[in-house]
Design a protein around this nucleic acid. Structure first.
Lengths: 337, 337
DNA sequence: ACAGTTTAGGCAAACGTTTGCCAAACTCAA
DNA sequence: TTGAGTTTGGCAAACGTTTGCCTAAACTGT
C-alpha cells in the first residue's frame, strides 16, 4: 500500500535524532535541551541546538513521549448526545480550557448507553489519556472499575454513581427552589413540574427543590408532578405536557427541569391552544443561548456552562496530583423573560 | 511525583510481553495471533494465546502501535465554534461514523481563527492523526502546507481555499434557489437576502443562488441584499435586519443563509413589531433540529447533517488509499412551516 | 533414505522519547 | 602534583508494537 512519496506518513517531521545528527550531539542532549534542562550542556551547545530546533520547527513527538512516560496530553470527554446544546456548551468550554493547558480533548459520544461508555473508557485508557471528563455519567462496570482504581475522573452535571468524587455542576435543589420563587412571584397558584420517565439524580434534585420550596411558600398548594417518556428531553417534555390533560386542566406554571423539556412543552401547548406565557408560565433550567433570540416566552435558570471548562480542568489537575478534588458548585441565576 | 500504588499509570494493563511470558511463547507470536495471522502458529498455540488474550482482556496498545506503524486510529476534526448547532450536528454524526470505523475523534475548536487552526494542524500532525476533517476552513499557512503535502483532508461545508479537494456539503446555489422558489410560492414580492459582513464562499453561493432564481422567476423584481456585522451569525442576522430600515420598509420575504441569522432577524422583527410570519416571511438554511419545536415560524432548507458523518468517513478512507475523493453533494429539502 | 518444502516460531530492529548512570575533561585548591 | 568536585555529554534501557528475516523441525514425495 505504499505511495509515491518516500515518506508520506502524516507525522513525518524532524525527530530528536535528526536534530542530534545535524548538531553533532547525542539524542539525549537534544532531548534535555528541548525540555529546558539548559544546565546540562555548555552554552555553546545549547545555543546551537536551540537554533536547530527553531529552524526545523522541531516539536517532541507526543506519541513517543506517551509511550515512554505514559503522559499523553490527552483527555477524554464522555458525553451523551452532543445534540443537546447544553452538552455542546460544556464541550466547547472544556475544549478551550484544556487547550490553554496544552492538552487536547477526545470527544466520545456515549448516547447514554452503558456499553458504549464502557467501550470508550477502555479505549481511552489504553491510549494513556490523562483523565476523564464524564458528563451525565451512567452506571457501568468499567466506570465502577475506573473509580475503584482512583483514575482521575471529573463528573459533570450528574454525580458519580459510585460514591462522592470530583464533581462540577450547580446546586440543583437550589435551582429548583429559585424557579419556584420565580413562579410564585408571577402569581402562579396551580403549579406543576414535569420530568423524564427515567429520573437522574440531577433532575430529581431540581424537581424536589422546586416542589419543596413551592409548597413551603404557598401553604395548601400541591405541586403536580408529571412524568413523560421519550428518548430525549424534547420528546419527554412533549409527552409529559400531553399527560397534563385538556387545556382547562393545565397548570398555570410549570417547572421544566431542562430547557429542552420546556421546548417540548411549548409545542404541546401550541397544539392545544394553550398560550405560553399567558395561560401557562413555564420556567426552564439551563438557559440555552438561543433562548434570548427565539424563546422570549421562556424564563430559565442560567447554568454557567462557559465557566465549567476552567473548573473542570482545575479539578483534573488536582486529581492528577493526588489531591482529592471535591465538589464545585457554580452559581446560577434566574433569567426572567 | 510517585504515588502509593506501584503502577498507577492509567494505561497500565496487559501488554504483548505479559501475554507472551504467560503463554511461554515470544512476543511476535502473540502479536501475530492478536492480529489475526492464525496460520503463523500451530492450532494449539493459537488456542492458548487466544484464551489468554480473552482472559486478560488484552487489547493492543494504540500508542505503541502508532509509534511503530504511524497508524493511530485518530482523526482530528477542526471546527469553528461548537456552539453553532449545525457544527454540533456535524461533530456528532462524524464521531459516530468514526467509531464504527474503530477510530476516535479529537475535537478542535478553532474559533474561526487562522492561528489556532494552524496550531491545531501542527499538533495533530505530530500525533500521527490519520486524517483531518475541517469544517468551514479558513485560509492559513499550515493548511496550505497540508494541502500541498497531500495530507488526507476532508473539507466540510466550505471548500478548500487552496484548490479543489475532498468536500462534503450541499449544493448551496441550489439551496438558495429552492428558498427562492419557496418565497415565490408564498407570494413574496419584495424580497431581500441578508448575510454576514465577511462572506464565505458557502454563504455567497446561497445568496447568489437565491438572487438569481428569484429575479429570473419574477421579472422586474430586485432582491435587496443587506449585510450585517457580528461575531456570529446571530449577531450578524440581527445587525443585518437592523439595516433593513423602519418596519414599513421591511421586505415581505427574507433569505437567511443560516438558521442562526434567521434567529437574529426574528429578534429584530420582534423589537420592531414586525410580525413573523405575516409581515415578513423568513426562510432559513440548515433546519436546526430545534426549529420543529420552538421556531414554527421558520421554514428552512434542511441540510442532512446526520448523513454527513458517514460520507466524511468514506471520503477519508478513499483519501488514505490514495484515491482522489471528489466532491460529495448531499440532497437537501425545504421544510415548510 | 534423501532432497525439498512447508510449518512454527523466535530474533532483532525500528518507531521517538526520557532518564539513570557512567565517564571523560575540566577547575580549583592545597 | 594530586585529589576532589564540577561540567558536559554520551550510552543504553525502557515504553508496546509490528514485521522482515532466519532456523529448526516436521512433513512430503519419490
Amino acid at each position: 500500500m505504499s505511495r509515491i512519496e518516500p515518506d508520506r506518513r502524516l507525522g513525518a517531521r524532524a525527530s530528536l535524532a535528526d536534530i542530534a545528527a545535524e548538531a553533532g550531539v547525542s539524542v539525549s542532549t537534544v532531548s534535555r535541551i528541548a525540555n529546558g534542562a539548559l544546565d546540562r550542556a555548555s552554552p555553546a551547545t545549547v545555543e546551537k541546538v536551540q537554533r536547530l530546533i527553531a529552524e526545523r520547527g522541531f516539536r517532541p513527538n507526543p506519541v513517543g513521549r506517551s509511550l515512554r512516560g505514559g503522559e499523553s496530553q490527552l483527555v477524554a470527554m464522555l458525553a451523551p448526545n452532543l445534540d443537546n446544546p447544553a452538552m455542546a456548551a460544556i464541550a466547547a468550554s472544556t475544549e478551550a480550557a484544556l487547550r490553554d493547558a496544552g492538552t487536547v480533548m477526545i470527544l466520545c459520544d456515549t448516547h447514554d448507553r452503558p456499553d458504549l461508555q464502557d467501550e470508550y473508557l477502555r479505549a481511552m485508557r489504553s491510549r494513556f489519556v490523562e483523565g476523564f471528563v464524564v458528563v451525565s455519567a451512567v452506571a457501568s462496570p468499567e466506570l465502577e472499575a475506573a473509580v475503584g482504581r482512583g483514575d482521575p475522573i471529573v463528573f459533570v452535571n450528574r454525580r458519580s454513581p459510585y460514591g462522592g468524587l470530583a464533581f462540577v455542576g450547580i446546586d440543583n435543589r437550589k435551582a429548583g427552589a429559585d424557579a419556584a420563587d420565580h413562579l410564585l412571584a408571577r402569581g402562579v397558584r396551580r403549579p406543576a413540574a414535569i420530568h423524564p420517565a427515567e429520573l437522574s439524580s440531577t433532575i430529581r434534585d431540581r424537581v424536589e427543590g422546586f416542589v419543596e420550596r413551592f409548597e413551603a411558600q404557598a401553604p395548601g398548594v400541591r405541586v403536580r408532578v408529571v412524568a413523560g417518556a421519550g428518548a430525549n428531553h424534547l420528546d419527554a417534555g412533549y409527552a409529559a405536557a400531553g399527560a397534563l390533560g385538556p387545556s382547562e386542566e393545565w397548570p398555570d406554571g410549570v417547572l421544566c427541569p431542562s430547557d429542552l423539556m420546556a421546548y417540548g412543552l411549548y409545542r404541546a401547548a401550541l397544539e392545544r391552544g394553550v398560550r405560553v406565557p399567558g395561560d401557562c408560565e413555564p420556567v426552564g433550567i439551563d438557559d440555552n443561548a438561543l433562548n434570548a433570540w427565539i424563546a422570549p416566552w421562556l424564563s430559565s435558570v442560567r447554568v454557567p456552562y462557559p465557566a465549567f471548562g476552567p473548573r473542570i480542568v482545575e479539578c483534573l489537575r488536582s486529581l492528577r496530583q493526588g489531591e482529592p478534588a471535591g465538589e464545585i458548585l457554580l452559581p446560577h441565576a434566574l433569567v426572567r423573560r
